[in-house]
Write a protein that binds this DNA or RNA. Structure first.
Lengths: 217, 217, 217, 217
DNA sequence: GATGAATGAGTCTTCATTCAT
DNA sequence: AATGAATGAAGACTCATTCAT
């Protein structure tokens, strides 16, 4: 009896919680988020609609939980990369960050929409909780960053991540137009305006880091 | 009798158009956009619901009209500032841009949400039209910018504005939490995480511009 | 001054009345009726929407006016054909009637919908007026019919027309499915069920007339 | 314990389905169909508007369900009557058919409007489905008819039903004026024009059948 | 008489959330 | 705990009709 019944129950609950989250994610990865309904998620997860509300008080909480998982995973990935040896240059940092967001369209979509979620009335508590989780986590990765970029002062690693996140969000929103709009744009004389997310993010971060370092001198 | 009846009618129409836009704006300035319905706008504007659709074919068109006005006004303001004499430094450019977005919470909210608007199915045509208007306008201001920052190559002015817009969007979304969330944050041990939009935007643009210039050398 | 001002006005009014009717007809001939709005009609007629209501108290009255014109024209056509010489057989009558409705899809559509129009509350007066016009007119053609089909008793000509109209209506409603439905039907194993209006109407009238005559014997 | 929980649920669902249909029917029996809204039906049925859409995907589907029930019941009734023994004459067939539509005003109203329902764009699939159900059913009754009227060739039973339906539709539309119109008509010198549906349908079918038989000779 | 801007009740449909079982 | 039927408040948009000019 290493695990009490209580613990067992808790684990079951936790598992179900995660199961729902995983399934919902899979669903949303395909469809544009705004149109994904609780009914869709329930069906895909193989649970009843009502059950969803047993594990998440509101739709918003579910969304936030999903983002939490992804964002933590993102920081974990960054940590791991930053732990790697070798010579660390600004370019390597930029490249590593660009790498970390490549092929994560769903994560960025969620990230970009995160703040919008907060602006709904319901968001108050959930938003506060999310922030309470996020910023400490951010600090840890920030410190790793400070070790790799010695010109950064204490605390500036997290600050850098903040700006990285802002740039990701801003650029992604511009780049992530629906296929039809992209098509129209590409066929128009404005075609050079189509935003290549990774390219622009790299350019932006490069300039930013360089600027910060020069500012120190 | 300088104005014919036809002209008069046209002006009336234009006035009403603008009146609705102004009222809608006023309303949205208070409430988060996603929850503002046509019914709300109609009531606030003192016109019937049906009347709204006399002036704007869809809700989205109304929203886009609002943003168009604001964004053009923003570029006009930038142009005007950039025409001013005196010595132009990077710091002056940054300060000027920061100035131009100060006290325009609604504009930025709209800007930040613009792309989201585009992700709905209906948006295809409207989105394309909007882009067709936006980018040429951006180019003009971009050229003025190139004159003030000689290290910029041809076309990079518009590119800079693109990144400025991305940063504004990204940072604003982080900074523009609803009052309740801000309150919770400020009273928590995380209070230093509250994002001061203007300060961060200035810092970000400063680093960015500096980095671009250094990259040239 | 052969025509007084008053007369002139009346004629103008009459002309406009007819002009609207003609234009509306042209429009409805193309589009399915239920979806044709007063705005459409106004635009096509080149008059303002409000003007429509100067000439017709309601939408329904306009529709009824349109039908009146067509139905009278139909009876006129029948009269004319029935006046022609030669030997008159049942088959000739049937053929002539079938002929008279061939290539008049709009008229039949209107006819088929006439009664539905009457079932709206507004219809009371207009319906009564329409009937007051219709039945006497029907009697006249009925009498011509009695002359050509001697087995008919006095008054049975109109009665025959009544049934002809019922059959037209009933068969037309079945035959006049929208193109998509017809397509589906034709490609299905049920394809033999597609109703060929003229063929069925001819068959139906032939049997009917023959039966009436035999009943007399 | 003869019924499992699953079965029970299914039955509940079925019952509710039918309950809504019955209520909607009751409502439509009084008001002209085109004006009966989903809101009306919901209120009358004692369920919420949203609930309606749990049982029927669209308004049209609800309408079609109603008609399907009635039309199948009608064919069942015809079948049953045609199975009865004794000597079968044309008059008996006519009388039987007339009997079968007596006191079914709502059914005929629905039948008469069926095709109109089909003319709306949405109807494509539903219309095809309905036809796929209807015509085979019609064939069965048609065969019974052929047995009772030996002069009919193979397949002509269904063809006869088709024409019967057309006549019912056509005559009913003429006879089913709203009370106010009937009143006006009866009090006018045109009072003989009021159509007695059963009488006319009987006369019409009698002539038709007789004509078909004579045509064979 | 003619206009067309304005109206607003009405239309179907959606979906997060609740709650009896 | 799990269900899923039920809810009902929104939602955007339409259109015959009115009326001030």
């Amino acid at each position: 009896m290493s695990t009490s019944k209580r613990t067992q129950q808790f684990e079951d609950r936790q598992h179900k919680h995660d199961h729902i989250l995983r399934t919902a994610r899979g669903l949303l990865e395909r469809n544009p988020m705004l149109d994904t309904t609780m009914a869709d998620i329930a069906e895909r997860s193989g649970v009843a609609k009502g059950t969803l509300f047993l594990y998440f008080p509101t739709r918003e909480a579910l969304m936030l939980s999903m983002l939490t998982i992804d964002i933590v995973a993102w920081f974990d990935e960054l940590d791991q990369a930053l732990e790697e040896g070798g010579r660390w240059t600004q370019d390597r940092v930029v490249h590593m960050m660009a790498q970390s967001v490549t092929n994560k369209p769903f994560f960025m979509r969620l990230l970009a929409r995160l703040e919008l979620t907060f602006q709904r009335a319901h968001g108050t508590q959930a938003a506060a909780d999310f922030n309470a989780m996020l910023y400490p986590r951010m600090t840890k990765t920030g410190e790793l960053l400070e070790r790799r970029l010695p010109f950064l002062k204490a605390g500036e690693g997290a600050w850098l991540l903040l700006h990285a996140r802002a740039q990701i969000t801003g650029l992604w929103l511009m780049a992530d137009s629906p296929p039809e709009v992209v098509k129209v744009l590409k066929e128009s004389p404005l075609n050079h305006l189509f935003v290549d997310f990774i390219k622009e993010f790299s350019a932006s971060m490069t300039a930013f880091l360089r600027g910060v370092e020069v500012g120190r001198a």
